[in-house]
Simulated scan of single mutants.
Amino acid sequence: MRILITGGAGFIGSNIADACKKDGHEILIVDNFSTGLEKNLEYGHQCVRIDINADEMQQVFRDFKPEVVIHNAAQVSVGRSLKEPLLDQEINIRGTLNILQGCVDNGVRKIIYPSSAAVYGLPSYLPIKESHTINPESFYGITKYTPELYIKSFNKLYGLDYTILRYSNVYGPRQDPRGEGGVIAIFLDKISRGERPVVLGDGYQTRDFIFIDDVVNANLASLCLGSQGTVNVSSNTSVSLNELLNILGEIVGNSLSPIYEEERPGDIRDSQLDNSCAIQMLSWTPQIDLKTGLSNTLIYYNKSRKVLL
């Protein structure tokens, strides 16, 4: 299968690209390397350095003729979306529209779009089902949800198939704490430097952490399954940041004493996503528990940074 992966030099995109190539698919990565890293392209993937909003993207479609697009390129920071809302919409909304236009103009069969738990906003119940009210608290949540509507319209108007994957908090090897970093990558970066981790809030806010390998497998399943589906990709478990630090302390053999600072505007207090639709539609289940995933991520950090924790 010919698969175009936008944002394929980033944390999630590069892991998906490697798995697709191992499965024998022909891969083309598109990335402008604003946050993506050359070192993530370990397997010699064919790559075009280009912005997804560039007019030249249409020539990329014409030359490669993809059957499926996995659209990972995005602005992923809640904080940055609040500081630079125009940039946020330029990448997440306009950029997705440019990719969708390339799909319909060049006979792409399907687009796989990673959305976010941020689209739900403050939950009225936990775990959150896909039918939950959409009420994002941040500009990031708005710009991740708006493309979902465009994708569904492109399906109705032009027959472009899709699977929308609403991720919970993804973590694992290659996540950059300074670029597209989530809280686990940021904690590990602090720990590896011998610094105290910083918690925004009281630490009792909860998250649903999902390991990168499980996210990759959901994308692989979506190549052929999940037609016109919108599903949560999550572990369906709820862990507080204080609990997370306790588990990390057990793994590294040290008691971690965090610094507590003020909450960040736009962040959700509690999050847990019901993954039963993904289990049913994609024949997928998460395989990696949190402690195993954290241990695997720490091994990666030790190897890549040559730092003994």
Rank of each mutant, 00 (worst) to 15 (best):
Y300F: 10
P173M: 08
G7T: 00
I251C: 08
I93D: 10
L282M: 00
G10V: 06
S168D: 05
P114V: 04
L200V: 12
T133R: 15
G95S: 11
I279W: 04
P123A: 10
L4Q: 09
I3K: 01
L273D: 04
S124E: 15
V68E: 07
S234P: 08
N72H: 02
S77E: 01
P265L: 00
N236R: 08
L37Q: 12
Q287E: 13
I299G: 12
E38P: 13
V78Q: 11
V198Y: 08
I3F: 03
I112S: 02
F11R: 03
T35M: 11
S81H: 00
R264W: 11
I191Y: 01
N302L: 03
L86N: 10
T163H: 01
G172Y: 06
D214E: 05
T6I: 01
R207A: 06
V108D: 11
D208E: 00
S238V: 08
K21V: 03
P136Y: 06
N72R: 00
Q175E: 15
T143N: 14
V199K: 12
V233T: 08
G179S: 14
E56T: 00
E243G: 06
S238W: 01
Y301L: 12
R62T: 14
Y120T: 07
N232E: 07
P258Q: 05
R174I: 01
T6C: 02
R94E: 12
L294S: 02
K156D: 15
N242F: 10
N135I: 10
V119E: 00
Y300D: 00
I52H: 02
T297Y: 08
G293R: 07
V239Y: 08
V78R: 06
T237E: 14
D274R: 04
C47D: 03
V215Y: 01
C20Q: 09
Q175M: 13
F187W: 09
F33R: 08
K21R: 14
E250A: 00
E90Y: 14
S153Y: 14
E130F: 10
V69K: 06
R2A: 05
G121N: 04
E42R: 15
G8E: 06
G79K: 12
L308G: 09
F139R: 14
E90I: 06
M1N: 02
F33I: 12
F187P: 00
G107D: 13
F11P: 06
N254Q: 15
E195R: 13
S276F: 09
K156W: 14
R207T: 04
D214T: 08
K152Y: 02
K129F: 01
I99F: 08
D289E: 05
K83Q: 13
E250I: 03
L41C: 09
C277N: 15
N53G: 13
E180I: 03
P197I: 07
N98K: 15
E261P: 02
E67L: 12
G229V: 12
L290E: 07
P85H: 03
G8V: 03
H25A: 02
Q228I: 10
H25I: 05
G24N: 04
E180N: 14
S115V: 07
Y120R: 12
S271H: 13
